[in-house]
Design a protein around this nucleic acid. Structure first.
Lengths: 228, 228
DNA sequence: TACTGTGAAGCTATTCACAGCG
DNA sequence: CGCTGTGAATAGCTTCACAGTA
């Protein structure tokens, strides 16, 4: 399969992954009443170097003014459009343990392009409960609920053992974007996007850096001390 | 040729980020009683191609046997050691809203190289509560509690507005690894490692892929129409 | 034989440095 | 002048393909 990209410009994945950061930085600036920023200033707020920011933005088009900078509101709107946030996307959360409940109550969905339309759990004790203003449905009715609510994004917050099964059922009824909080790898067919968020992984990466620093410190300056 | 352990090898960041996945895959295999795996099999479980897996593992040393594969237990131990998980690292969680509570109760810490030793919040209503078997302390006592418990990793689950202040105080008393769940960029001095986990960012990246697919579909099949 | 470990090639991302424009 | 946008240079990552070995 050859997706001819002659007409549509291809935005690098690394750039896409940073666009949300830029959007948040712009939103913050707009709230503070800032109307225009340079790449240097915006880069500082978003945590990247100015050259990288300019290169990233150049993939979206020419929205800056030479000698001046970028208009905050306009750039925010263009990034929102590129990310597809101008329309609300229906989200379903499967698995309402501690994490699922926290996600259901997360305030970052509203007004940022997402709307939680369904909560699903397997546990009879949980089904029927009200969480974050919604009634939890049974995972037995997953297909019907997902289809009926036109769910676009599935959030999996079940134990690892159940995650693949839930994922398969979501994909089977047309969900093509999955956010996985279960600590396992999900297999999906071509064309389905999966992103994984895993606390233990992040901590282990941090632990490595701690470890490396300790070893490096020992090697370079075995008697290094920190003055108070 | 330089397979000497005294030689300090630099392990690429991309490799480090995948080691936790390999470790989990190996742990799963060990629980299922598997004693030995090929790079092809382990790669399948961990979700990477065999060549990438072998290249990654080659940075740690030569722990495989040609013609056979890798011994599961031994490789798991070597990765654990490289990640610095052979000793438990004390973790403090700051901010006990919905997310902080879920993190405090997260079962993935125990036995994986981490131990939650302190919970801190600013809210008088929350301080003194028992969460996940621990009493929540006041963020006013952050310095004393972090120092007293030899906290190595700080987890920030506060609102964005408080995150930088908490981070500064953690860093000031010697914490050099921070996991940030607040939706903002943290500034830290050289030598401090920060990793960010943000739900909204992940969803927005997924939204982009949805959007791109929709556009691509329209281009290939222009007769598609959206009902008003 | 069946597998690992690895140089080399290919690809992607970042940084540099400056041309070009308001 | 100051700043964006971008080709060129660099660095980093992934894939290939096979030599080497238990």
């Amino acid at each position: 399969m050859t997706a001819d990209p002659a007409t549509r410009r291809e935005i690098p994945d690394a750039t896409v992954a940073r666009l949300p950061d830029y959007l948040r930085a712009l939103t913050d600036l707009a709230e503070r009443g800032v109307a225009s920023v340079s790449s240097e200033e915006l880069g500082t707020v978003a945590g990247v170097r100015s050259a990288k920011l300019r290169k990233d933005l150049s993939h979206l088009g020419s929205y800056g003014v030479r000698g001046v900078g970028y208009e905050v509101e306009m750039l925010a709107h263009e990034i929102s459009r590129e990310l597809g946030l101008t329309q609300d996307r229906p989200v379903a959360i499967v698995g309402l343990g501690n994490l699922g409940r926290a996600l259901a109550a997360y305030p970052g969905f509203v007004g940022r392009g997402f709307r939680v339309v369904a909560l699903l759990d397997r546990d009879r004790q949980v089904v029927g409960q009200e969480i974050a203003g919604m009634i939890v449905g049974s995972v037995d009715d997953l297909e019907q609920i997902v289809t009926g609510n036109a769910v676009a994004i599935g959030v999996i917050a079940t134990p690892a053992a159940s995650a693949q099964g839930v994922c398969d059922r979501l994909v089977a009824v047309g969900v093509r974007s999955v956010l996985n909080f279960a600590p396992c790898v999900l297999s999906v067919p071509e064309g389905v996007a999966v992103r994984k968020v895993d606390l233990a992984t992040e901590l282990q990466i941090l632990a490595f850096h701690e470890q490396r620093d300790v070893l490096a410190a020992r090697e370079c300056a075995p008697r290094l001390e920190v003055a108070p």
